[in-house]
Simulated assay, not measured.
Amino acid sequence: MKYMLLVCGDDTADASGMAPVEPWVEEMGAERGVRLHGHRLRLPADAVTVRVRDGEVLRTDGPFAETKEYIAGFDLLECADMEEAVEAAAKHPVATIGAMEIRPFWYDEDPEGDIRRLDSELTKALRERDVDRAMACYAPDVEVFHPEAGREGSGADALRKAEEQWFATLAGPAEREVLDFRLRVDESVAFSHALVRLRAPLVDGTALDTTARVTTGYRAVGDSWRIVHQHTSVPAAADHPSAGDARS
């Protein structure tokens, strides 16, 4: 479960004896994988408070409330439960001079399920050779390395051209079998690493049967997820491992 750790500083506290934060970041991040992301914030004097009253935007320089305690930074944690989050917060150096507020995320969505359904859409689009259906899975500013183009392309128009060229080489429905799919989801971005077997008859009378390694980056766009980066690598020679070998 994900938790937001609000690091609350105290401008009246003496921080001269506080331990450095970097060892905590290293332990919770690289070593334990509990800390997903975080950053310091500028001081409250640099804040801007915005209110809207009767349609008028009211801007006030400074924090929402005058107080000796303020939000100095934040960390996004992924823990088994609140107890593990408390244990992580208690080790933060600022806890010795300030306070740590832990807030569980409100979950009413299924981002992993949404992304897996997006991948299923790619399979269906390929089977039907439906370029429009495939393109609906991508963001307009997508960056893609497409085997058909043989180079990186920027934007949906470049991707559509490469997809159309590739679909034109297919003589019939193409089968896309995902042999391995590993996904990591944060709040607004996600990455997957997949091993995908592609099989299809080609217009030149031969048959396609190859295994590709696909790395995909996703971004939450409004209420849905879209692909913003995709790199596909396929064997360059016949002596590369076959799809059967790739299964193991």
Results as ranks from 00 to 15, higher is better:
88 A>N: 07
216 T>K: 02
200 A>N: 06
133 R>E: 09
203 V>G: 09
83 E>Q: 14
142 V>D: 02
73 G>E: 01
210 T>Y: 15
118 L>T: 03
191 F>G: 12
35 R>E: 09
84 E>R: 08
235 P>S: 03
11 D>N: 01
109 E>A: 13
7 V>S: 01
19 A>C: 09
163 E>H: 13
106 W>D: 11
120 S>P: 08
21 V>H: 03
2 K>E: 14
222 G>C: 08
133 R>K: 14
84 E>S: 10
116 R>N: 14
105 F>P: 10
28 M>Q: 07
221 V>F: 10
139 A>R: 04
131 V>Y: 00
130 D>M: 02
109 E>I: 13
37 H>A: 11
13 A>T: 00
177 E>W: 10
50 V>P: 10
166 W>G: 15
58 L>T: 06
211 T>R: 01
55 G>A: 03
142 V>Q: 01
210 T>H: 15
145 F>D: 06
102 I>T: 04
183 L>Q: 05
95 A>D: 05
39 H>L: 14
41 L>W: 01
146 H>F: 04
36 L>V: 09
106 W>L: 14
246 A>S: 15
39 H>A: 15
187 E>G: 13
184 R>V: 10
190 A>E: 05
244 G>A: 15
219 R>E: 15
71 I>W: 00
10 D>F: 00
202 L>W: 02
73 G>I: 02
11 D>V: 00
149 A>D: 07
76 L>C: 04
239 D>K: 03
91 K>M: 12
82 M>H: 06
98 G>C: 01
240 H>T: 08
119 D>F: 15
92 H>C: 05
4 M>V: 12
142 V>G: 04
92 H>K: 02
173 P>T: 03
110 D>L: 09
230 Q>R: 08
101 E>I: 03
54 D>S: 10
13 A>P: 03
19 A>L: 08
104 P>F: 01
236 A>M: 13
107 Y>C: 14
202 L>N: 04
161 K>L: 15
157 D>V: 11
199 R>T: 15
98 G>N: 00
187 E>M: 10
